[in-house]
Design a protein around this nucleic acid. Structure first.
Lengths: 329, 329
DNA sequence: TTGAAAGCGCTAACAT
DNA sequence: ATGTTAGCGCTTTCAA
């Protein structure tokens, strides 16, 4: 900037005025400055700027487990929509579900002085964030709650969605409804399992642990789990799958084995309609999840100081062919 | 930091030493400093830091049209993999294919002094970037070439992929092969159309403009385009679709109309195997595209100064059921 | 309308 | 082993 000033033969402050569109600069002076700016290819340095200004970086941090996962990229898109209206930028990092990496990522973002932070947390003790929150950095948790602290959080209605799915199967006349899910140490997996059980309890249907398989973390292991369930003396007549990876594994295995099984998947699939047997699914708006999380951050940025809030994003059951029709009684 | 120094009763520089893990600090002193750091909830300010240091922000900028699009999120993931090995962070912005927004985004990123930039550009004159490139900021273009400047670029083999698809259909005995694509103002759409035509030319098959439909930008309009093609007196017996959105529109319409038509889609679909009729597709590794783009940036960051390079990422034809079997001659 | 000087929070270079 | 000083590139405050 000082170079620009020299070339334009004005003071540094005048250049600053031009660059920031402040008034009180003679058109002729402004022209000289602009010329010098183009000549030198000058760009204002935002780091220096935010150092002097009221310390806003107009940047929001987002920590998720994987940018490549459609669920998280939908969230990122929702967050971005809000961020954009405020003329802010988004810094994203993938934690791969590793608490230590998550913590490092958060530290880096905070050191870069993001104005706010949205985190989809791995299970961990998040008390280390209390100091930063006390310093006024809005931190919002998305999809899963933080560990051992109170903070704004937005979750899916995991239990409600699973319960609605199971109740739909019950209404169709099924009584042996299986469940294949991920490890219950994962918050969403545990909640979905809870919803599954709650539905059976509410309808006084016997819960058989034999047809519940937990710990499937990818499509392959879900396929194996399904084979085991189908090999049982009394296999389930219907199945709820705990997430999209598991659903895909099950669909693949089903395509191979041609077994008849009513199926509902938690998480909708993009091409659910075009599958061999269109998938009945527990759907929700992941983008909206991102938007609402960003709105929580923005509200605090705008001076809101209320207590931590927990928001629940609803799910809906999209009934297609895979859940089948009423069982013959 | 000065507050920490005061509380720990040491000089500012000693705090800096502790924070940066520099040697020559007595363990006892270090303990006092660390205590003060925790007490005050201190975080090093990276803006101030990079201002003084050799101006590295350890940040890479990525401008794409939409974070929510699987193609771009795969790219983002690939870029992130590389960025992570260098302990850098990724700042992402979506341009929505709007050249003006793209330019603003780029300006913001450059003002924030990203160490490098990866851009999937909308068609535009990119000469405004020459000054920044001359200042040593590595800028790499991905998926589409920049306008009116020379810069490192990585593209898909769009023409080659389309050509291979058409040749596969020709080998199966088809002679009336249609094409539904996006507007040829879009680089990739134009290239794919070129590949389609090149294959027909090479095999001396007559090109009929009637069975080529351009300008489909979403699934709905692709569905309409298909209906028009099928209503023709001499409809095509096979079809190449120009991208995943178009493929989905065509699949939807095909599911409705039950028309018999050999189909190949450019862009693979995640559930291609599980569709009613598994999709033959022109596939490629979008993540690798991101990794290679990031590698180009990183190489220049490491001091490479060669001329602009253009890399081509190969595609492959994944043959499944939808392209059908050999036509009865 | 323009400019001079101070200082944001940190690190590099040089003392002690 | 620890401290002092200057200055990164900008904006703020005040003066001309």
């Amino acid at each position: 900037m000082i170079d620009v000033a020299r070339v334009a033969d004005v003071s540094l402050k005048t250049v600053s005025r031009v660059v920031n569109g402040e008034p009180s600069v003679r058109p002729e002076t402004e022209r000289r400055v602009r010329l010098a700016i183009t000549e030198l290819g000058f760009r204002r340095n935002d780091a220096a700027r935010s150092l002097r200004q009221r310390h806003r970086t107009r940047t929001l941090g987002l920590v998720i487990s994987d940018v490549g996962n459609p669920f998280y990229s939908a969230i990122a898109r929702g967050v971005e929509q809000v961020v954009r209206t405020r003329d802010m930028l988004l810094v994203t990092g993938s934690s791969d579900e590793d608490p230590e990496r998550e913590r490092n990522l958060i530290r880096e973002l905070l050191e870069r002085r993001v104005d706010g932070l949205i985190v989809s947390p791995a299970p961990a003790d998040h008390r280390y964030l209390l100091a930063d929150m006390a310093h006024g950095v809005p931190i919002v948790f998305i999809d899963r709650p933080p560990g051992r602290i109170e903070a704004d959080t937005i979750l899916l209605d995991n239990a409600g969605g699973a319960r609605a799915a199971v109740e739909h199967l019950l209404e169709l006349g099924h009584e042996r409804i299986g469940f294949i899910g991920d490890l219950p140490t994962i918050f969403t997996a545990a909640e979905r399992l809870r919803g599954y059980r709650a539905a059976l309890d509410a309808h006084r249907v016997r819960k058989d642990r034999e047809i519940v398989h937990l710990g499937s973390h990818n499509a392959e292991s879900a396929g194996r789990a399904l084979r085991e369930l189908l090999a049982l003396p009394a296999p389930p007549t219907a199945l709820l799958t705990g997430n999209n990876r598991i659903t895909i594994g099950v669909l693949t295995e089903l395509a191979r084995s041609h077994a008849a099984l009513a199926l509902i998947g938690f998480d909708d699939l993009e091409l659910a309609d075009l599958l061999g047997r269109p998938l009945t699914a527990v759907a929700y708006d992941a983008e909206e999840l991102g938007r609402r999380a960003a709105a929580l951050v923005v509200r605090r940025l705008d001076g809101h100081h209320g207590p931590a809030e927990q928001l629940i994003e609803p799910t809906s059951l999209v009934v297609r062919a895979s859940s089948g029709s009423r069982l013959r009684a």
